[in-house]
Design a binder for these strands. Sequence first.
DNA 1: ATCTGTATTGACGTTAACGTCAACGTAATT
DNA 2: AATTACGTTGACGTTAACGTCAATACAGAT
Lengths: 132, 132
Amino acid sequence: MPDTRSYSISDLAAEFGVTTRTLRFYEEKGFLAPERRGRVRYFSAADRVRLRLILRGRRLGLSLEESAEIIDLYKAPEGGKRQLTALLDKLAERRAQLEKQAADLTATLADLAGVEDACRAALADLNPARSR
Amino acid sequence: MPDTRSYSISDLAAEFGVTTRTLRFYEEKGFLAPERRGRVRYFSAADRVRLRLILRGRRLGLSLEESAEIIDLYKAPEGGKRQLTALLDKLAERRAQLEKQAADLTATLADLAGVEDACRAALADLNPARSR
DNA sequence: ATCTGTATTGACGTTAACGTCAACGTAATT
DNA sequence: AATTACGTTGACGTTAACGTCAATACAGAT
């Protein structure tokens, strides 16, 4: 069975550590489209996954727009040769960007590691008895 | 010799692909502090490095504030045990965040790779003659 | 002298991504 | 009937990170 359970707005907000305002905002902007019974929102498992991806993009520093675009790429590729080729181009573009980001990340982590070393050395130097 | 050459504001802007407005803004906010002769700014090699680091942080999705904080961590660790321990805590915190980001990154790249595969398969399927 | 190029300082405008009310509806308890 | 707990829709406020003028200064070439 395809996980027919639904989530209230505050369920999701609590689970992902965001406010309900954020979720309403995402719907207003079209990044989420929960079911509506009356005025009340019911988030499906699919909505939940989509939210997870959006927030993942956010942690990567992407705009909501960018995240949404990438998520839309995830959808089953259909269409003619032209569409598919265009999609491949976009994918390559994204990959290039993300790989640059990965490089930046490792560089920063390396820098931080260097500082950590120096810091530990200074500490040990300052307290020779309890060095390890 | 310690690279005594200096850069004009538009030199740096051109080199790093930002506008002069951006550099003035960074100075105004205290993220850069170029030398001033009269009213004119002269950026040193050190300023240039700092700018590079700021922009690296920006590509990682950090705020300027966060980038500046990290860059300040890079400075030679001094101070007493208390300071050094606090610094180590900050470093660990940063590292945790960046490592989470790295995980997000690899996950996203994996997703994109999956889409690329499906896309190529669809293309090959659509044009069996020229598959490779 | 004037023009061209590059610099400067205000100062207001803009966009994204929400925060923060206020006013209200509704369903279940007390 | 009143409280409590959750939901809703406006609508205005906020912050970061610049963009976009406008008015001005100054140095060198024409």
